[in-house]
């Protein structure tokens, strides 16, 4: 009995706060060691980690709305697919071209769109996602319509190609860690603090000398670049892209992951993507019900646990507080 109950619970809280992220990282390590079928599942989760991390910067940190991030994943994915499979570019160069194209598109789209607020912004971004989907379907000479593009080579430089599943997974894990680290650095920089400030109140942020429009646009472009990278990684790992892969269900899936993991937290995207990625594998014949379950889960989380898994420690804290209010009051 050397520890007082308060320190035990605060240590427990600290452990709880990091437990989900550690468990998710453990899952990735297990997949790398195991090397079996789980590699595909976790790889998918890691690609989505990057996509959701980008979404998190724009929505979690800056508090903005975008239902059209699939557009930027699509631009990255199709740029990589067309340039490598049709024109024979090396993957790295194609990926860079895709990122530059996405950044330019994000600037051109974001400049007028981000002036909008509330449901206008929501609907405008939703429309942008749908327009890109329509372009992917209709621009047959480039995108091959509904049939999609296949025969996309694996990632690699020169003669070194990432062919084995395990090598690909390690590469994806490195990319995911880098993107989360970048997100963390961003959050704790002057820029990140400005985003959090403007998410609280744009007027107050402006009064503090923050150029609100410029910061929002920059956050939008950064999150678009994250989406583009995830799109590129996806086509090179899967080797195929079609419009169905970048439709509305991608947006709902990403939001479910973001909210399960915890919106606004740095590791939330990883937790959410791994948990939601593993879900279909734990329930047999789940595939038919996949989107239905994601949608229902998203509604439940939005209502009952808007902080997601990353806020588990706070939920527990709240429970303890309601059970033992006296402890919290004591100085």
């Amino acid at each position: 009995m050397t520890n007082s109950p308060a320190t035990i619970s605060s240590k427990l809280m600290a452990a709880l706060r990091h437990a989900p992220a550690i468990a998710a990282a453990g899952m990735v390590a297990y997949a790398i060691a195991d090397g079996g079928y789980i590699v595909t599942v976790v790889g998918f989760g890691l690609i989505y980690t990057i996509f959701v991390a980008g979404l998190n910067i724009f929505m979690g940190y800056a508090g903005q709305t975008s239902f059209g991030q699939n557009a930027f994943a699509a631009i990255g994915a199709y740029a990589s697919a067309v340039l490598t499979a049709t024109y024979g570019w090396p993957p790295l160069l194609a990926a860079l071209a895709g990122i530059v194209a996405t950044a330019i598109c994000a600037f051109v789209i974001g400049y007028p769109t981000l002036r909008l607020k509330g449901h206008y912004l929501a609907m405008a971004t939703l429309a942008i996602g749908l327009i890109i989907y329509e372009v992917a379907v209709q621009w047959q000479s480039v995108t091959n319509g509904y049939m999609g593009i296949s025969g996309i080579p694996a990632l690699g430089i020169g003669h070194y190609e990432l062919l084995s599943d395990r090598a690909q997974l390690i590469f994806l894990a490195i990319m995911a860690v880098l993107s989360l680290a970048a997100s963390w650095l961003l959050r704790h920089s002057r820029f990140g603090r400005a985003l959090v400030a403007l998410s609280g109140s744009e007027d107050a942020a402006r009064a503090l000398g923050i150029n609100v429009r410029q910061y929002k646009l920059t956050a939008f472009i950064i999150s678009a670049i994250y989406a583009s990278i995830s799109g590129t990684l996806f086509v090179h790992i899967v080797g195929f892209i079609s419009p169905e892969m970048i439709g509305m269900n991608m947006v709902i899936l990403a939001f479910t992951m973001l909210y399960v993991g915890g919106i606004g937290t740095t590791t939330g995207p990883l937790i959410g993507a791994i948990v939601i990625g593993l879900l279909p594998e734990s329930i047999r014949s789940f595939k038919d019900y996949q989107d239905l379950v994601y949608g229902a889960a998203l509604i439940l989380i939005l209502i009952y646990a808007p902080g997601g898994i990353a806020s588990l420690d706070q939920v527990v804290k709240k429970l303890l507080r309601t059970k033992a209010p006296a402890k919290e009051v004591a100085p």
């Binding site: 449901h119 929501a122 709902i252 939001f255 949608g295 939005l302 808007p306």
Partner: peptide, 16 residues
């Protein structure tokens, strides 16, 4: 809930 959460929830209801 914020306006955005409401939109997302109704969109999810649509998907369901």
């Amino acid at each position: 809930a914020t306006m955005f959460v409401m939109i997302l929830a109704t969109l999810a209801a649509q998907i369901v």
